[in-house]
Design a protein around this nucleic acid. Sequence first.
RNA 1: GCGGCUCUGGUGAAGUGGUUAACACGUCGGAUUGUGGCUCCGAUAUGCGUGGGUUCGAUUCCCACGAGUCGCCCCA
Length: 416
Amino acid sequence: MLTNAPRGTKDILPGQVEAWLWLENKIRTLCKVYGYEEIRTPTFEHTELFQRGIGEGTDVVDKEMYTFTDRGDRSITLRPENTASVVRAYLQNKLYANAGLVKLFYIGSMFRYDRPQAGRLREFHQFGVEALGEKNPAVDAEIILLAWEFLKSLGLSDLKLKINTVGCPACRPIYKKKLTEYFSENVDELCGDCRRRLEKNPLRILDCKVDGLKEFMEDAPKIETCLCDDCREHFNAVKKFLTAAGVDFEVDSRLVRGLDYYTKTAFEIQYPLLGAQSAVAGGGRYDGLIKEIGGDDTPAVGFAAGLERILLALELQRLLPEQNKKIAAFIVASGAEAETYAFKLLTDLRRENISAAMDFAKKSMKAQMKAAAKSGAKFALIIGEDEIASSTVTVKNLETSAQVKVPLQEVSKEII
RNA sequence: GCGGCUCUGGUGAAGUGGUUAACACGUCGGAUUGUGGCUCCGAUAUGCGUGGGUUCGAUUCCCACGAGUCGCCCCA
């Protein structure tokens, strides 16, 4: 217990951190190219922000939030996603005052109380992007492109981009109603989960793995038939932009987003090799959220990508960069007096920004040489009585086995 | 929250109701004189996820819990 991290959390260990840093660098570089600026919001927020933003009745809010009461009796929740927080920060700090379109990105950990499995943790990391203040479908396309190009640039293959439109408050209710009516007629054929969905979220029935292949599913009403003119035009424009950019996408009328705030464009990028948790990035437009949270009616688009899942995919394809733990020099000292002499040399080298190490365990010289070899150091700097007496150091090139004795002051020159 | 499977040392793992829990890798030490990578030798789990129970006896059987894993729900 004491020696176990809480369920669903993971240590990111030396040897793994490098991959994270590498990935985060890629993200920051790319976002700069697209003109997005980094924002960091608090890890926790008032519970109400998520209740309002994400929506009561969604799984995330109903059963996955880490909520607690703080010592001031406030209900606090560890962020389960970051869009609501970004919107809150946008409003609170009046970021809209500086520009019509505000483009932000974030990297950070999110928390969801869910059953862990591969690619799904209770504390996990997301990279996300939000474009606030513009309704032009070109922005939807820009966001999708950013996500897509990012994953592509990492070298991932077999990625699938699916897009859909989920309508808006004007037309979605009509579609919902049609769906509910249609499935009610077939209620006997629905699985247990879907009967529940009939009430809560009939859109999800379309996505059901059990009922998905059944015959009546094919004749289920399609959202295209219900879209209002605005939504239809918007969707067509997004497709037009994506096509212009040469991106391969698939319109999937069954693609539904789980969070309430989505309107119009919804998209998801999948990496099927990951198994059940194959969605590597997902997002869409959320024109209603900002008003919901108390701002002016402001359109916005965004997405979030799961870093653990991306890392998993990269690992699968062996796309992670090799690490270099090697140091320049390893000091080998024999004798008590040599230790002090060696320590001084160690410090001097480091002051010159030369990576150096020595053994502190008072091992035999042979063992120290082994350690030197294992450290990957190019040079062993050998110090014994002779060297101390003559103020020199024996520099041995561990790759060629050649060695020379040089004056102490010239060691750094010798090993560069 | 629901279901299946799994759980032996630092790692990969073999194994059995009963006296010393294979093997490999790793780690540490050694193979005369101050020098590594190869080779050789030696050491390295009083312990088999945790807690109960069955039994003369359990790592091996049973139960609970925990963790992992795969799927469902949902999502990144």
